[in-house]
Every structure is written in structure tokens, then in C-alpha cells.
Design a protein around this nucleic acid. Sequence first.
DNA 1: CGCACCATTGATATGGATCAATAACTGTGG
DNA 2: CCACAGTTATTGATCCATATCAATGGTGCG
Lengths: 271, 271
Amino acid sequence: MPNASLIHIVERLSSAAAPQAADSRNSGTCGQLFRGLSPESLEFLLSRAHTNLYQAHEEIIRQGEDPRSLFLILSGQVKTVRYNAEGQETTIRMLQAGETFMDAIIFMGGGSPVNAVAIENCELLCIPTATVRAHILRDPQFASNLLHIVTNHYKNAMQQIDNISIKTPVERLGYYLLRQHLEQGADSLEFNLPFQKSMIANHLGMTPETFSRALAQIKKSGIDIEQKHISMRDIFALCHFCDPDLSAMCPRSNSSECPNGESCGKGGCPH
Amino acid sequence: MPNASLIHIVERLSSAAAPQAADSRNSGTCGQLFRGLSPESLEFLLSRAHTNLYQAHEEIIRQGEDPRSLFLILSGQVKTVRYNAEGQETTIRMLQAGETFMDAIIFMGGGSPVNAVAIENCELLCIPTATVRAHILRDPQFASNLLHIVTNHYKNAMQQIDNISIKTPVERLGYYLLRQHLEQGADSLEFNLPFQKSMIANHLGMTPETFSRALAQIKKSGIDIEQKHISMRDIFALCHFCDPDLSAMCPRSNSSECPNGESCGKGGCPH
DNA sequence: CGCACCATTGATATGGATCAATAACTGTGG
DNA sequence: CCACAGTTATTGATCCATATCAATGGTGCG
């Protein structure tokens, strides 16, 4: 009964995406995946999809395996990581309800370059690889949506690359915090770390110890950190970690309030 | 005269992609961009495209600018880099004839997150942004091609991330060399560094000094390096830098010759 | 209440950046 | 063809940042 499951799932999508953000939040990528699709197109996808439950720490897909599906997180958290020969891991992405993964990997050919692991118990919507691959040739809008999603992953990966290669740990952390601040509602002075600190540390290319020291460093400049709860003394406390990419997300970037002025948004020319 | 320019350009594409690789080389991405397109579709794209010359060191597009076109390199070399506030640069990609760039960035929305700079004098085919964006909605095959291209950029970016965050400089260099070896003809004992050493060093997230010392290190294990020319004493000299991603490119990875055996291709599970 | 697990803090060691000097190479003009 | 300047690569010496090792403290769960 495709129609029943369709309604069922779409309902859950909306409710999954909404709670985190009545404000200016990006509302995940689920909107992006289905945006502008005709009812028939959506029905085609959803009638071939199914949902699945995973336990905390369960491997959803392993490095090297062929990707079975494109996944959309209905509830819970997931991370994608890469392991090297010695078993050290690099966290590529950390995901929450409303976000998709394996969306890019489906088109890479060959086995998955990452492991996907459930951080906590979660429920996933699974759209089979073959369905997705076939559907982009039938519905250009769907192809366009995927292109935007993948393209944004790539952009984030580029940011991750230069964060790791030219920024100090404190700068990387500040950048991450600012980003969270902007994503979780740029008008509030408070926000939360959505993941475990050690996991964020790995994502930012540093050890938990270094992460902790970086936090201590940042506390000195008007930011209170208590467990996962962050509160800034003033709304500009994190502004000197801004860069052109983040300023595009900031409601104050073009106003005269912005302490970085032109230099923030337009930087990049070394001459 | 769209038809004349079409033939003209397609001819140059073939000749640009061919010389580097009579062998097993990937033949760039130009094949990917136009693969499987109908003559009408190709004509549509090319009739709206034009070519442009750039001088060495000229900035083709700046960080923050709106991307005007998708570019295909007809001749010469190009790099894409990001600058941080202090003017330090991170090299994201280094490109040769036959490869495309700004292909992903066109779909990101907002200004370009990278600078593109001509490494040497070069000639580029430019397909206007609007043309590309419109065309993916008209030709699903074109959209699919772009999806594959962007997706591969993303995969490379992920490799770059864990190279930088968990490998030593020697390992990063070894990995890069092995990749060049496989791309430039996996059966030859010789290959060349396609770019300046200092540029490769930056791409690999290290200083030129460290790069140089890493080269010296690698010389000790049966690899001769003279300027840009590399020759390996035996075909397996670089094998211990292999990983699942590279083994997929290696003609010997599944044979019993492979010194890494199963461990190379299947690695990744820490348990 | 006690056991894991995670975060923090301190002490130490080390790898790669930085600074500095030299050498090799590239191209240019006499 | 050689001399020169400018660039790129190599090699050496030093220093500092961050990983590592180690111990403690806090939190949540059974």
C-alpha cells in the first residue's frame, strides 16, 4: 500500500525536521531531497522505500561494501567515518534527524569509501540504490536536488580540509561553535553541542585532550561552557572566527553591526 | 555557427585528453561530462559555450565571486585553492587538460568557495552557469554525468581529509606517488610528477621542506627520484601505501601477486 | 552504590613548522 | 654559449604545538 506508507513517512519527515528549528535553521536535507518533486515522483520513490531500525553503535554500512540504499534519518544520530590500516578513524560527517547519507556514495561506483555507524538508536528511511539511480534519469528535478545535496557535502569537505590544514585547534573549535550558533538560531545567545565532545574533536582533527584545552581557551573570551550547553555573553563573541562561508549564513553580516565589516565576507585575495 | 564550433571543440577535446594516456589512464573528466549525450544535447551546450585564454598565474575566478561558467581545460594546468584570513593557502585540486572545474560550485549557491588560478598559460572551454543549470533539467543524462563528477570530487576530498588528519607526511607522499603510478600506467616502472613539488606539498598538507625530507625517506626503499622523474626498482615498491580506494585502480590487486593480499582491499573494520 | 565511560588537567616527548643557508635549475639577455 | 637573476628544491638547526602518557574528577546507568 504505497499511499499509506507515503503519507506516513512524509508526516514523519515534517515532524522530524521541525523541532530543532522554528527559527532560521537549515531544516536538514530532507527538504532538499524531495523539494519540488511531483506527487507521482515522490510516490514512485516512497513506494520502493522502506524503513529500518538500527541500534546504537551498529554499523549501517561498512567501508568497501556496495551501498544498498540512500538513507534518510527519521530519528536518531549517525556518523560516517573512515578507518585507515591501523584502525584509526576520521569522522567525515555527524548527522541528525532530517539529514541524508550515502546520497553521494551511490554514484561513486565501487564500494563505499566510508563506514556509517548509528551513534544512538535510530530509524532510517532506505531508498534502494537501484531506485535512486534509475529515478534521476526519469526526474530531472530529483537529479537536480541530489546535485545540490552532494555539492554541499563537497563544500563542507573543502572547509574541513582547510580547517585541518591551516587553522589552530582553537580556531577550528571557534569555527565549529560559530557554525552551531548560526545553525541553531542566530538570534539566541545559547546553543548546545549536538554530539559527544570526543566525536566533535575527531571531526575537527584533534584529540579529546586538545579539544578540552581549546574549550578552556575559549571560555576566557566571554563564552560559558557547561557540559554541552554553550552561552555567549554577547552575540558577537564568536565573530572573529567567521569567514566568507559562514558570513553568508549570518543575519548580521551585512549590517553595520558586524565587527568584521567588509573584511569578513570578502576576504580571500592575498594580493 | 554552432556546428563548426562544435566540431572544432570536440576535436580538441579528444586530442587534449589522449596524449597523456594511451594506457589505462582515466582520461580526465571531459569524457565524463559529455558521455552518452545526444548530438542535440551536446550541440545545445557547445553552441552556448566559448573558449578563453588565460596567462600563467592569472586568477580565473576569485573566492566569493559568483561562478560565471563551468570550465573544461583544453590545454594547460589549473589549480583551485582556498585562502584564509592570513593569506595562507590550501590547494584543493590540481588539474590538467581534459579535466573540469567549477562543475560542483555552480550548484552550491552563493559565491565560489575557492579561487581558480592558471598554473601555466591555458585555454579553457567555458559553459555559462545559466546554461548548465538549465540544461540539467532538460537532459537527465547530463545531470547524471555531473552527479558522477561531483561525487568523485567529494570522494577525493574525503581521501584528502583523512590523509591530512591521520597519515604521516611520508605516508601521504607515498599514497600520492602510488596514485600517480596507477593513473599514469600501472604497468610502467616510471612516471612523472605532473606538478611543481611545492604545490604538491601544499596539496598534501605539508611544507616544501617536509616534502623534500619525505622524498629522501622514500628514496631509501627502492625508489629513484630525479627531479620530476620517478622510477621504481620493482613494481611493488609502493604497495604498502595502498588502501581500499587505490586498490580498486590496481590491475594486480586481486591477483596473488598483491603483497597486501586481502588486507589491502578489505581493510577498514577495526573489530 | 559502584562501575563504565567521558571529560579535564598535568607532565613529557616528538614531529613537523619555521628560520636560515646553500644548491640546483629555469629562463633571459648579452 | 655563457653569465646572470629569479625561482625552486634541498639540507641543517632550532623551537613550539600538539600528541601521547598518566592521573583525577565528574556523570550517568545498572
